[in-house]
Amino acid sequence: MNTAAAHHRSPVTIIGLGPMGQTMAAVFLDRGFEVTVWNRTASKADSLAAKGAVRASTISEALAANELVILSLTDYDAMYAILEQASEHLSGKVFVNLSSDTPEKAREAAKWLADRGARHLTGGVQVPPSGIGRPESSTFYSGPKDVFEAHRKTLEVLTGADYRGEDPGLAALYYQMQMDIFWTSMLSYLHAVTVAAANGITAEQFLPYASATMSSLPKFIEFYTPRIDAGEHPGDVDRLAMGVASVDHVVHTTKDSGIDASLPAAVLQVFKRGMAGGHAGDSFTSLIEIFRKPAS
Rank of each mutant, 00 (worst) to 15 (best):
A197E: 15
T74K: 15
E166N: 00
D256W: 01
T154K: 02
D180N: 13
K93H: 11
E84H: 06
T194H: 04
S246A: 14
Y76H: 11
W38F: 14
L73S: 05
L173C: 10
V127I: 08
I201P: 06
S257D: 05
R40V: 10
L217T: 14
V35T: 00
E149N: 00
F223Q: 05
Y209K: 06
R227P: 09
G124I: 05
N97M: 04
G281P: 08
M275E: 06
S138G: 09
H120F: 12
S43L: 13
T254P: 07
S43F: 09
S296N: 14
A266G: 13
F33M: 14
W183Q: 14
M275K: 08
L287G: 02
F271V: 10
I228M: 13
S211H: 15
K153W: 00
V12Y: 01
H151S: 04
K111H: 10
Q22G: 14
R119L: 11
L263G: 03
P264V: 02
V37G: 00
L48V: 03
E104D: 14
T213I: 15
P226F: 06
K51N: 11
K51W: 07
S99L: 04
D30R: 12
V96T: 09
S99I: 00
G165T: 05
A196T: 03
S215F: 11
S91Q: 12
R292I: 04
S216I: 11
V127F: 05
A161N: 03
Y141K: 05
P11L: 10
V125T: 06
G243N: 08
N199D: 01
L98D: 08
T154L: 14
